[in-house]
Design a protein around this nucleic acid. Sequence first.
DNA 1: AGAAGTAGTTGGTGATACCAATCAAAGTAG
DNA 2: CTACTTTGATTGGTATCACCAACTACTTCT
Lengths: 140, 140
Amino acid sequence: MTDTQDDRALMDAVVQLSFEVMAVLHQVGAAHDLSATQLRLLGVLRDREPRMADLADGLGLDRSTVSGLIDRAAARGLVERFPDEHDRRSSRVRMTAAGHELAVPVAAAVAERVAALVEPLSRADRATLRALVERALAAW
Amino acid sequence: MTDTQDDRALMDAVVQLSFEVMAVLHQVGAAHDLSATQLRLLGVLRDREPRMADLADGLGLDRSTVSGLIDRAAARGLVERFPDEHDRRSSRVRMTAAGHELAVPVAAAVAERVAALVEPLSRADRATLRALVERALAAW
DNA sequence: AGAAGTAGTTGGTGATACCAATCAAAGTAG
DNA sequence: CTACTTTGATTGGTATCACCAACTACTTCT
């Protein structure tokens, strides 16, 4: 059983943290002319070459939204579509070399800014935080 | 000094958590015909009656963005503008009774969903998580 | 009083995201 | 093997969000 006041305080803290993190993503993205969604896209494509439908499912977005997203990213040369071997209806998506080249410094910048966000915590506390968050996420 | 791999892992965890939380906000908001930004707006106005400029600063948004935001929220009867006593240029904003009535169940729904997100953690771990996040946020 | 700065809105643009409709390809009956 | 249904992806249409530049109204500074 969870206590209602504790729920509230935890919610406030976690929601506020999330807004801070999203603000960081916006800022870092803007510095490279990328939206937060495109940032996320590059993150997902870092080690995957999914079909459009998988991408939409993974991002929790409508397929038509992902179509436009990939259109714009492809127009910039960051990603490319290629046909699926087993299903001729499907397009799959992968990052281009240019996409990877952009993703590396962007990820570094985000890591740096997030590190700054948790900098007031001691090294041990940061390790604890990371472990707790990872454990919560592991179970959905 | 922070270690680069630890930075990466912490970044991944925190960013992923943030996207999960934003997804929750989107879903809860959608269930009440509110965007994540409007949700945030209601949160900010819960105990404040700021001027437009303060609101824009607090949300980290352009003033013109906030104008439109308040226009739409006011059209729905959730908030209202009222003149500032000391400066006739300023509009201040407050929630209406209808706004408060909507904010209560929405906050409860968000708290419930966030609680579900951290439900795999023990009660003690949740308290630790909350303390760590609050401490990180307290120092910006 | 006049100049400079601040508060807020308006108009214009682009990105995000949805839904409904459409087309092509695959899968499932009968 | 043909007909029905499902699935993958795109297109067109709409609303919101967010920015910038320009503008009006009011304050403050000199």
